[in-house]
Nucleic acid binder design. Sequence first.
DNA 1: GCCAACGTTGGC
DNA 2: GCCAACGTTGGC
Length: 156
Amino acid sequence: MHHWLMKSEPDVFSVTDLARRPRRQAPWDGVRNYQARNFLRAMKKGDLAFFYHSSCPAPGVYGIVEIAREAYPDPTAFDPASEYYDPKSTPAQPRWFMVNVRLKRVFRSPALLDAIRNEKSLRAMQLVQRGSRLSVMPVTAREWKTILKLTGEKNK
DNA sequence: GCCAACGTTGGC
DNA sequence: GCCAACGTTGGC
C-alpha cells in the first residue's frame, strides 16, 4: 500500500464538504499538472491519502481519505463550461485523470503546516521543500506515521 | 496583495 | 531546442 498527500483549497472543496457527500465519497477532479496526474494514475484502490487544506488561514493536514476508485478520465476537461476545461483532452485521447476518494477520518486536531515545518524528521518531506507546489504527492510510511503523531491520533 | 518558484507557451 | 514572457501556486 502507498501513502499520498492531496491538496485542496477548503473554499473550493474541504474535508467537511467531503463528509457531506453521499457515502462520503467524491471524485478528485481538476488536477492539471502532469506530475500530479502521474501520481494519481499510480494510486491503487485502498491506498490512503492525507487531505491537505491549502491557501487558507491555517494550512495543514485535516483528515485521511481512501482511494475508492483508481484513475479514470476527468470529464471536467471535456466540458467547455468547466473552469477545468482543456480542449486538448478528449474522450478518445484523455489527458487528465481523477480518482474517487472516500473520507476515512477527520482529525480533531489537524497537523498544521507550521507544526510539520517544525518537525525535524519531516524536513525531507516533499511538501515542505522550497518551491514545491505539487497538489498530489507521495508520502513515505515513516512520514505518514510522524504526521499522525502530530495530530495526536493513533494509527489503527 | 505580494512575491518566489515553477510550469507552460510560443517565437525564433 | 533555447529562452523570455506569462500564468499559476500557495505561503505569508
